[in-house]
Each structure stands twice: as C-alpha cells, then as structure tokens.
Design a protein around this nucleic acid. Structure first.
Lengths: 219, 219, 219, 219
DNA sequence: CATGAATGAGAATTCATTCAT
DNA sequence: AATGAATGAATTCTCATTCAT
C-alpha cells in the first residue's frame, strides 16, 4: 500500500481520536489501532504525537478553508457570497464533526505549537470576511475610511469597525457551528440563515450610521 | 491555617493551572505546589482531580453569572441593561482570564461530568439574555408570538427568533471575550460596544421585519 | 472516658477491620473512625499499626485459648474433655468471626512480628491437645514411649505419633472452623462431632496398633 | 525473547513475591524487578495486579491438581490411590512452597475475585477424595446410602459422612502441608503417613459403625 | 515496508505518621 | 485528654517512544 494512502488513513484515525478524546487523552496506541497499522509505522511516517497533531490541524484547516472559499464565488453580489460562504462553512462543520472539534476545541486548548496553526486559518477566514464586508459596503455606496475610531458619520465606516464586525461574525459562526453540531434539528441552512440575518442587519445599520452608543439611550 | 482559606488557595491554583495547561496536562503536583501545599492535602480537601476541576468550574461559573447579573439592574431600560451586562461580562472575562479559559475552553472539551456544568451556566445566561431581548422588543412596541417559524410580519417576532438571537449573541460574546483576552488594545468597553452595535442593529431589523433571505437578494 | 475502655473500643474496631479487610488493606483512618476517635488518639494509645495489630492478635489469642481451656475441665474422662474443648473452640470461632479471621488468616499471612504470636498460641493449644491424647491413651491402658519412630507394637504409642496426631487434629479443627464460618447450616456442634468422630477413631486405631502402612496394602 | 517465555518468568516472580509478601504487600515494582523486566511489560502482558494474581492462582492450582491426579492412578486399590495422592500432594507443596502459600494463604485472604478460584480447585480435590473414599468403602463391602443423617448401621455409610470425611481430610492435609513446610525434618512421606493413618482409621471406624457420640461416653 | 518486544518518565491516588494547639 | 491540619513515601497504572529484526 502506497505511503500517501497509509498516511491519510493515519490522519483519519488521528482526527477521529483527537476530536473525540482530546489531545492529551488520545493515545498513540488507539490511533494506530484505529488506523489498522502498528505504532512504529505511525512514528516512521509522522515522527511524534505533536507532529501528528499538527498534520491533523493543517489538513482539517485546509479542508475547511477550501470549503468556505468554494462557496465564496466572485462575480456575484457580496451578500450572496457571504451567504454561500456561511452555508459552506456550517455544512462542512456538520459533515466533519471530529475535524471541526480538532480545530475549534483541541487545537486552541493546547499550547503554542498548535494554537498558531488555527490562528492562521482563522485569520485567513477573517480576512476573507473582512473583504466581503468591505465589498458589501462599497456596493451600498458607503466608503471605508482607514482611520482610527468610528466617526459616526453616515455613509462612512471605520476600518476598525469592519474588522470588529468580521471578528464578531466569525466568532458567532464558530460558536453556532459547535452549537449546531450538538443540537438535533439544527440544519446547516437554518443556522446559516440565523446568522446571516443577524450579520446583515448589523451591517446595514452600521452603514446607515444608526449606531447604538451608551449615551444614545435614556439617561 | 483554616480549611476554608486553604481550599480557596487550592481553587485559585487549580483554576490558574487548568486554565493555562488544560485539564489533562495540568498535574496535581503542579497545582499543589502552586497552592503551596502538599498533594495529599489537596486530595484530603477535594477528593480527586475530577472533583477539583468540577469545583473550579462551579466557582468560576458562579462568579461570572453573578458579575453579569450585577450589571443587569432591573428598573432601567432594556437596552441599558443589556449594555451593562455585556460590559460586566467582558470586564470579568478580562480580569479572570484563567477562569474564563476554564469555562470556555477546558470544561467544554472534556467529557460529560464537566460539559454539563458549563452548559447549565450558559443556559442561565442565555435565559437572562432572552428575557432582555424580549423586554427590549416589548419596549419598542413589538409583540413576541409563541408560534413556530418567523411570520415575517412587521411588529411581530417569533419565539424561535428571539432564542436564536440570544444564542448567537451569547456565542458571539464568548468568542469575542476569547479574542479580546488575546488582543492587546481591545478594552472591555470597546469590545462591548462592537457587540452591542451588532446586536442592537440585528434586533431592530428583526423587529421591523427587514429580514435577509436567500431569495431576497439579486439573482 | 477512661483509657482502658477507649483502648478496648479501638481494639474492637481494629479486630473488625483487620478481620474483614486484611492487615494491609485496613487503614488506620477506617479503624479510628469505626472506633469513634481521632487518629492521633489511636497512635497515642497504641503507637503504630504494627503494635495495634499485635495487640489485636494477643487479645484474640488469649480469648480463644481461654475459651478452649474453659471447656477442658479436669476431672472428667479425656474424651469428654476433648469433646468439650472442640465444642468451645468451634463456638468461639463462630461467635467471633473477625477475631478468628485475624488469627487464622491475617496473622499468619504477614511477616515475622505476627506469625510468632499466633504460633505461640497454637503451640499452647497443641500442647493441651497432646496432653489430652496422652491421657486418653493412658485411660485406655496404652503406654506412650518417649522413643523415636513408631514401634508398631500394640498397646504402645510413640511420642512422635501423639504429637503428629495432635497437630493433625488442631490443623483439621482450624480448617473446619474456617469452613464452618462460611458454610450456612454448619453448627458448632455438628462440626465438632464430625471432627471428634474422625479423631477418636484415629486414636483408637493407633492405640490398638492398626496402622496403615504403604506395604500393608495389596501388592 | 518470546512472549510466552517472558510470561512464565513473570508468573514465577509473581508467585514467589505474592507467596512471601502477601497480595497487598507485594509491589508490582518488586515483581517486575525479580522477573528481570520493566514494570510496563508486566502490565502489557498481564494487565493489572488483580489479573496477575489471578493468573498465578490459576497456574498454581492447575499444577497442584495435576500433581495430585498424577498420583491417583486408576486400576490400583483405593487405599493405595489415596496414599499416592497424599504423597504427591505433600511433595508438590514442599517443592513449591511459594505456590502453596499463594493458594492456601493469600488467595483465601483477599476478596472475591480470588477466593472463588481457590474454592473451585479445592472442590475439585474434595470431589476426587470423596470418590476415593466411596471406592474404598465399596472395596471393603460397605454400601453408601444417599440418605441424610447417619443411620449408624454397620456396613452402611451416609453420603454426608463420606463428604464430611473428605472435607476434614482435605482440610487436615492443607493444614499439615503448611506445618510441614515450616517444620524442619518433616518429610513429605512422614507427613503423608501420619495423615493416612489418621484418615484410614477414621474411615474403618465409620464403616464398622463405631462412632463416637457425646452420649456414648461416661457421664 | 513493517512489527513484536521493551522501557524511562511521570500520572493519580493512598497511607502511616506527626505536630501545634 | 484530644484533635484539626499537614506530609513523605509509596503504589498502581499509562504513555510516548525506540530498537532489533
């Protein structure tokens, strides 16, 4: 059996085990057995538990990013791109629960070699979303100023605000994906719709300058 | 030294260690040393690693809920209550990063004794937020119908939508808290403002029936 | 509460715990709790686990020997004395199962400080039985020769044979006591009768020279 | 080194250690060192202290039963079979003192997983002896009635009496084996002869109806 | 290419024992 | 006379990792 195939089998087993047991609780014994190979072979191919875990993270991160990017097709309006991206994201997380668990739970929870990998992936997605939001703003005739804090002027949006929005959106998506994965009856489409509604409304309001500030409320 | 004091010292040390290392990677040796006591004493007072971890989760969850509830003072308008609650939440998470890590990362990542504890706390907060959102809607003259799916009628909001909003809001807040804890220059107030804007806009749009649906967009 | 009383309570608790759990598995914590006192007090009175166990053995051994000797009343025929002794022995073992377990199982199973204590008690009983057997033989008009091996002559019994008989009898009694303690429906009287029958027959045969030897059998 | 060989080495070491120190006091460290392997290997092959101990009991019980059965060759008169069986038993116990200690002391003294193992072996031997005694009775022209209590009639023996005899005989043999193992100058042959004499006499007396009863003695 | 055999290092947990009061 | 507080030293068990073949 060719090496590449064996390696994928090992990664499959590792993702499943890490996702369900957690990094520390997963044992190389269990992974090797699940992969149907002997432990030394795992070491021969992947060197150590740490490298094996890193390889898992990379593979799953790449798959997720690729799935999302597959949804975000240029040429259509920004809101549709966002919608398709969300849909692709929730569908992928639902179809690969172990991989999603590795990325969202395990990788973050264990020290530095791993957190950086996920942070990179996350940054990639945040960037994508930031661009989408900026594009949506542009389509709505709103300029994005590279300045610091929010000017509050209608038709103008600060960089920071767009970035904050993107972060909040990605954070909400991550949280909802975990929730949808453990909630029966939460389809990817419904989940995406909930978030899209939320996000789009926030975006429209920001663009039209209707911000909520502590002082805008009753005394 | 009296038992109660020692116990708090141990919990302090345990929260710090669990928060930084993770449940499995944290060793009782390290916790005991950090607490300035011998391991047997930790066992004498807290019985096992599992019970120790559970005690940490309970204490931190109670502290967090209490902080948030301290912000949500009845008698003021709902939007202010929400604002104050968010502020209290982000401030508490920022001031207790290890406790927050225990609740948001560790407790969820490890099997059933623990996940349930956090789920209970989360439910408590989601309920609080749901009530707040409903109150805000009422203040704005919008009725909340106990029916199933969204009717789309102006001035009417389905139960499910309020709950979805609350879930998304709490999820976004959790995610933003993690992000703020890791991002220099993100103050609790700024973070709360970003989210409040986002959430309030979503709420206003929902209340006024301006929902985004896949088909409402350009082809 | 006077010291002597407290000490007996501790020994009661210790005998029960050692008898049921075994020497190593019994913990000083459990013993102290069962005795209703604090651990340091146990140490104050009995110094160490080893000394505590020794004290248990001594007390139980003395009680057993005293019970047996209470049955063996001089002045009556030797067979009756033997019978009464057996009866007293089985009754005592049945009434004090934990004490009997300490003597028969635990004390023997754990190294040298303890085995010697029990061996001493056992020797005391074997001596008593030896004298009884010799008395019975004398009553039956049979001389006991202080010589070495069995002469085989009728009406004469070697020292060694009497000692062997006594040892076998005591061994059988010990074994039967353990058996009776775990066998429902085995009364002390029945058990004593079984053994008495066995022993008395052996004795009579020996005294009348009807020995079994390998060569006395068919070729 | 092949697994089977290593396993036997480990069992050898374990039997020696358990026999001398007792179940609780024997440490896996000591056993591993005596076996000349590392502790993890012992766990890899035998899983736990409990399973290791059970394996010891099984091996030693099988060896002992096999030794006794090797002595009891069919085709020769029952008394010779009994004699050869006793001889084989005492010889085996003398040659394997640790194994004998495991079976006779340790296994009985510690809770349920183990006691049952030994009880099974003991039952096997008691059955063998019961059959032998019945055969001996038959050869002597005595019928064994399946009835309840002793009829007392000459030439007739109740089931119960045969079973009681077998139990007492096995108990006496066990006790004598322990004694012989501890008494210098007590050869297997001498020990067997003492017991055989004892047993055979008891059997002959029972068969000829000469039972001792409390009331048959002088007042 | 693949594995059976083997281990050093460290994990959780328990226990007999001692002080200061 | 009595105890709450505290620990050093084991003990059972697990795991990532490496050779020799």
């Amino acid at each position: 059996m060719p090496r590449a195939v064996r390696e994928q089998q090992m990664l499959d087993a590792a993702v499943a085990t890490f996702g369900q047991r957690g990094y520390r609780a997963a044992s190389m014994d269990e992974i090797a057995e699940l992969a149907g190979v002997s432990k030394p072979l795992v070491y021969l191919y992947l060197n150590s538990k740490e490298e094996l875990f890193t390889a898992c993270i990379r593979r799953e991160a790449a798959a997720l990013v690729s799935a999302v990017q597959g949804g975000v097709t240029p040429g259509v309006p920004a809101d549709r791109q966002l919608w398709n991206g969300l849909l692709a994201f929730f569908a992928h997380a639902a179809e690969n629960p172990d991989g999603w668990a590795v990325l969202s739970n395990q990788a973050r929870t264990h020290g530095e070699p791993f957190a950086a990998e996920v942070a990179a992936m996350r940054e990639e997605i945040v960037t994508l979303v930031t661009l989408l939001i900026a594009a949506a703003a542009a389509e709505a005739g709103c300029t994005v100023s590279p300045g610091g804090s929010s000017s509050g002027t209608s038709e103008e949006l600060a960089d920071r605000e767009v970035a904050g929005l993107a972060h909040a959106l990605v954070g909400a998506a991550e949280s909802l994906a975990g929730w949808a994965n453990v909630t029966p009856g939460a389809s990817a489409k419904d989940t995406a719709a909930t978030l899209m509604n939320f996000a789009w409304a926030g975006l429209e309001n920001l663009m039209s300058g209707k911000r909520w500030t502590p002082s805008s409320s009753s005394p």
